[in-house]
């Protein structure tokens, strides 16, 4: 490179250095995210067959999409199940992690010990481990999920409600296990709330209950949104997720193939984005109302 010094402003030099630092990520994004994403989309519009030398594609327009949504009963059923399970799990995770964080924010002995327990699942939740634990019945609320009373109760429920309740009973502990990181995030936000606000409220005659609704909860609004995002994404990417398992099995299936699996992944991505958008809207709406 020639060493001719062009007059270059401080601002430009700064921008150039910045781009140099992020360039490796930008290259990576193009190579490992954008290009594969576009390719997957192209696959989803084709019937893809794997041959000895590579793959051959046959353009079929939206056939894969219409097959997934209109003729494949399994996929639609699993997708609806996924939306329902997410809608049940996310509030549970959020409320539970907030309660635990509020408890851990109190002053008492052995706090570190309890923190260690509540964070432990984060370290060990992998697909096969969860699958093994579920298969051996270790994740049920002991004695509750299969007691006779519950069974009678389940039979009385309408069909639409039965599946969610069953899901809740059989994997209650599992849902709680996804709360570890969220507890930490809530806890650190709680610690940032100024103590003097509570003292001022107490002097004005507010009790603990009122302070919680008027001070703590509004202060946790952004954190709740972050946690909701994190929870939804973690649950949706989890390798034991039924939709993901189905898409995976279809990738290698003779009937399905790469094209069909790609179309289903795009529908799944769309569902995930819609869920995230709904949650964002709902939480920011409730934030505006409470203000």
């Amino acid at each position: 490179m020639s060493q001719v010094k062009r007059p270059i402003s401080h601002r430009q030099r700064e921008a150039r250095s910045g781009w140099i630092f992020v360039s490796i990520w930008v290259i990576g994004f193009l190579l490992f995210s954008l290009v594969p994403l576009v390719q997957t989309f192209v696959f989803s519009l084709n019937a893809v067959t794997v041959t000895a030398t590579g793959i051959s594609m046959d353009f079929v327009q939206m056939a894969n999409y219409s097959r997934a949504l209109l003729t494949d009963p399994t996929f639609v059923e699993l997708l609806i199940g996924y939306v329902i399970e997410t809608a049940i799990s996310v509030p549970i995770v959020l409320i539970f992690s907030m309660i635990i964080a509020l408890l851990l924010n109190l002053k008492f002995k052995f706090k570190g010990f309890f923190r260690t327990i509540f964070f432990l699942p984060v370290v060990i939740t992998s697909g096969p481990v969860i699958q093994e634990l579920t298969a051996q019945g270790a994740t049920k609320v002991a004695g509750l999920a299969d007691s006779a009373t519950i069974e009678v109760l389940l039979r009385e429920l309408p069909n639409a409600l039965r599946a969610p309740v069953q899901y809740l009973l059989s994997s209650f502990i599992l849902i709680l296990w996804f709360s570890g990181v969220q507890i930490l995030i809530y806890l650190s936000s709680l610690q940032k709330i100024d103590r003097s606000v509570y003292e001022a409220a107490a002097i004005d005659g507010a009790n603990a209950w009122e302070s919680f609704w008027k001070i703590t909860l509004p202060a946790l609004q952004t954190t709740t949104l972050i946690n909701a995002f994190y929870t939804i994404v973690t649950l949706s990417h989890f390798s034991e997720n039924k939709v993901i398992k189905y898409v995976y099995s279809q990738t290698y299936a003779v009937q399905g193939g790469i094209g069909y699996a790609s179309a289903m992944s795009f529908i799944y991505l769309l569902a995930l984005v819609v869920i995230l958008a709904v949650i964002t809207l709902a939480l920011s709406y409730s934030a505006r109302k409470s203000r």
Binding site: R11, E14, A15, R16, S17, G18, W19, F21, V22, W25, V26, F29, F32, S33, V35, P36, L37, Q39, T40, F43, V233, S236, H237, I244, V247, Y248, T251, I258, A261, S262, S265, F266, Y268, L269, L272, V273, L276
Partner: peptide
């Protein structure tokens, strides 16, 4: 630490890589 144009776009793309499930990018890879 640096101000440059396109930074916000990078943040958006970062979020996108976090949200997009591996299923939509893994087969071509």
């Amino acid at each position: 630490r640096y101000r440059f144009r396109g930074k916000n776009l990078i943040f958006v793309l970062l979020m996108a890589t976090f949200i997009i499930p591996a299923q939509t990018t893994v087969i071509p890879q």
